[in-house]
C-alpha cells in the first residue's frame, strides 16, 4: 500500500500524483518505471517515474486517462492508498550530453517523456520538444515541457493550435533548420514508426521508448515482447528504450491491438458504473 500525498490536474485527463514510496525514490533513475495496481482485482499497468524526492520518500507519476485502469487510478485522491506499486523497473535512460536533442512525443507518450526531457536538459543538451496531438484540447503538459526544454514546438493535425501538421512535420522542420544529434520519441506506435523512418532518412540516432502491453513487468511472462534487430526482446527488462531504427514497429502495432475488443467492453462496463 502506497499513500497518495499529492494530486494535481495538468488537464482534465492528465493528473500528477505524488506517492509515498521511499525505497523506490532512493533507487530509481530517469527512464525507470513502476507497475501500479488499483484495487484487489485491478490490472497491473506500467507508469514511468516522472520524478522523486528522496528526503520526502515520494515518487511522482503522471497519468493520462486511457482505459479502465488509468481511470481508476485517476479517481484516487490525497490520502488514498494505491493497492500495489512495485519498482523501479526497466533499464534507466542512457543520458549524456549529445548536443541537440529533439524529443518527439504525443498521446500516451507525453507523460513518460517529461522526466527524459528534464534529465537531458540537466545533462547539458539543447532540448527541442515537439508536442503533437489531434487538436488543441488534446495538447497536454505544454507548460511543464516548456520549463525543461529550450523550445517547445506544438503540432496539431487540424491546426487548431500551434502548427498544423503531424509530429513528423515538426521534427523535419527542426532538422531542416539546424543540426540534430539525437532524437527521442515516445507515443503511439504508429507515431514512433514514422518518426523513426524520418530520422533514419537523415541518419540521426533515435531512441524509442516502447509502451507495449505488460502483465508483470519483471520479465516473467513475455507479453511485452518485441523484435529489435531481428531478436526478440522483453520491453520490461531489456527496455523500455531501444534503437528505434531496429524496432519492428509493424509487429508492435499488431501486438498492441491484441486486447482492444476486450478493453473496449471493460471500459463500457466501467463507464456504466461511474
Amino acid at each position: 500500500m502506497n499513500k497518495i500525498v499529492g494530486k494535481e490536474y495538468f488537464s482534465e485527463n492528465v493528473i500528477k500524483f505524488e506517492v509515498e514510496a521511499p525505497l523506490i525514490a532512493k533507487s530509481r533513475k530517469a527512464g525507470h518505471f513502476v507497475m501500479v495496481k488499483v484495487g484487489a482485482k485491478g490490472e497491473r499497468i506500467p507508469l514511468t517515474i516522472a520524478d522523486a524526492d528522496i528526503s520526502k520518500g515520494t515518487i511522482t507519476l503522471v497519468v493520462q486517462k486511457m482505459g479502465v485502469s488509468s481511470s481508476k487510478l485517476a479517481l484516487l485522491n490525497i490520502g488514498d492508498e494505491i493497492t500495489d506499486l512495485v519498482g523501479p523497473l526497466g533499464k534507466a535512460t542512457h543520458i549524456e550530453n549529445f548536443g541537440t536533442v529533439v524529443c518527439a512525443c504525443g498521446g500516451v507518450g507525453t507523460a513518460p517523456m517529461l522526466p527524459i526531457v528534464d534529465a537531458l536538459k540537466k545533462a547539458g543538451n539543447k532540448v527541442i520538444t515537439v508536442l503533437a496531438a489531434r487538436n488543441k484540447d488534446l495538447i497536454i503538459l505544454e507548460d511543464q515541457m516548456k520549463q525543461h526544454s529550450d523550445e517547445v514546438i506544438v503540432m496539431t493535425d487540424d491546426g487548431s493550435y500551434g502548427n498544423k501538421g503531424l509530429v513528423t512535420n515538426g521534427v523535419e522542420m527542426v532538422i531542416n533548420r539546424e543540426k540534430v544529434d539525437m532524437c527521442v520519441t515516445i507515443g503511439p506506435a504508429v507515431m514512433m514508426k514514422f518518426v523513426s523512418m524520418l530520422t533514419k532518412k537523415y541518419d540521426i540516432p533515435t531512441v524509442a521508448s516502447l509502451n507495449t502491453i505488460m502483465v508483470d513487468g519483471t520479465g516473467m511472462c513475455g507479453a511485452c515482447r518485441v523484435t529489435v534487430g531481428g531478436k526478440v526482446k522483453f520491453v520490461c527488462v531489456d527496455g523500455p528504450e531501444f534503437d528505434a531504427h531496429l524496432v519492428d514497429f509493424d509487429e508492435m502495432l499488431m501486438r498492441l491491438g491484441g486486447y482492444k475488443d476486450i478493453e473496449r467492453e471493460e471500459m463500457e462496463r466501467f463507464d456504466c458504473h461511474v
Binding site: G42, K72, V215, D216, C221, R225, E251, G258, Y259, E266
Partner: peptide, 29 residues
C-alpha cells in the same frame, strides 16, 4: 511466434491465476 494469441504459459497462467482475469470483476483481460 509473435502473432497475437501466441503467448507463454507463464503469461496465460499469471493472467488467470494471479490476476483472476477470467472473472468479470477483474480488470485484467
Amino acid at each position: 511466434e509473435n502473432f497475437v494469441g501466441v503467448m507463454s504459459s507463464n503469461e496465460y497462467l499469471t493472467r488467470v491465476n494471479l490476476m483472476d482475469a477470467a472473472s468479470s470483476e477483474s480488470d485484467t483481460p
